[in-house]
């Protein structure tokens, strides 16, 4: 029924390499593969503009894909999304505040605010839920947190000091990889890698949860500890991605579904494959965004939702057919 071995992962890795390669060549100016070494402007475009952008897309996509797989595995719900914990909206609130206060002169301020927002969300979750490890309280706390921070973000927007700040906030909220530099890559990579390592380490516990909570606990899974690992892992991954690229939705929701068709439903196998597929999705979507006609570039966050919403509808229709 499902492919065993690592052939799927290898195919995905090859596809990711191809997507990365193409995204270096594609854009307003098409470059030939030889341009890398041509020196001057073309190689500058590749090394300073497109390569960091592709790398950042890869890191963020991988993180979001894996976080989505972990989230769905934990909640045993195919409709769960890493944004559900409220981490991404809290990070967004932090970033928006830094723009509101006009602190964007130094490169590191906005990401630092975003990360502080993510950390605040993680701390609030830990406080609200305590060590009980209960699923319901946890999910509700996340929902409350995201609607609260969403409301606060709207408040900040409505109080924006100037039209410039307003447009900066709105543009930023849509999420994009435009004009990202190596400094963004250097910021997002270690945090995402750490978060992914934490999530990866919870793979076996998530596998056990396939059998439901009582059976998983009888297999030695400590629900409170698992929850802590997930909050930390998802907080780091999502916090880093929002800090570097703004809010990019749907990746964590869609990718695990695509991957499950290939590797089956076992969370410990879905997670790494979802990381690869997430990277492919974000890198290629970002490439397409650059190619889209029009004066200004389509924002990646918008493009992802335009892609994601129909996909999600199709998924719902299929789920409904399976249930009936």
């Amino acid at each position: 029924m499902k492919t065993r071995g690592l052939s799927v992962e290898m195919a995905l890795t090859a596809a990711l390499a191809a997507a990365m390669g193409l995204s270096l060549l594609a854009g307003r100016v098409w470059l030939s593969p030889g341009a890398w070494l041509a020196g001057d402007v073309p190689s500058l475009i590749i090394v300073e503009l497109r390569l960091p952008r592709a790398c950042l897309g890869c890191v963020i996509g991988a993180g979001l894909g894996m976080a989505g797989a972990a989230m769905q595995g934990y909640l045993r719900n195919p409709l769960a999304d890493p944004g559900l914990f409220g981490v991404s909206s809290s990070a967004a609130l932090g970033a928006v505040l830094s723009i509101y206060f006009g602190l964007t002169a130094a490169f590191w301020v906005l990401p630092a605010f975003a990360l502080a927002g993510a950390a605040g969300a993680m701390a609030a979750l830990a406080l609200l839920v305590g060590r009980s490890g209960g699923l319901m309280v946890f999910t509700l706390a996340g929902v409350v947190l995201s609607s609260l921070t969403g409301a606060l973000t709207s408040l900040v927007i409505s109080l924006a000091p100037s039209p410039f700040a307003l447009s900066e906030i709105l543009t930023w909220l849509l999420g994009a990889l435009t004009d990202r530099s190596w400094a963004d890559v250097a910021l997002a990579t270690p945090l995402t890698a750490l978060g992914m390592a934490v999530l990866w380490a919870s793979g076996r516990d998530l596998d056990a949860l396939t059998l439901g909570e009582p059976a998983a606990r009888s297999l030695g899974v400590h629900m409170g500890r698992l929850q802590a690992k997930l909050v930390i892992g998802i907080g780091l991954v999502v916090g880093a991605s929002v800090a570097a690229a703004g809010v990019i939705g749907f990746v964590g929701l869609i990718v695990p579904h695509l991957v499950r068709q290939l590797v089956g439903g076992q969370s410990s196998r879905v997670m790494p494959a979802a990381a690869l597929a997430g990277a492919i999705l974000v890198v290629s979507a970002d490439g397409l965004v650059r190619l889209a006609p029009g004066g200004s570039e389509l924002r990646l966050g918008i493009a992802m939702s335009l892609l994601g919403a129909p996909f999600f509808l199709a998924l719902l229709l299929r789920l409904r057919r399976e249930v009936v």
Partner: peptide, 17 residues
């Protein structure tokens, strides 16, 4: 321990389960 309602949440292959 075998819980009351045997839950299976993802379509794992039987040997993996």
């Amino acid at each position: 321990f075998l819980p009351q309602r045997g839950e299976v949440h993802w379509d794992l292959r039987v040997d993996a389960l």
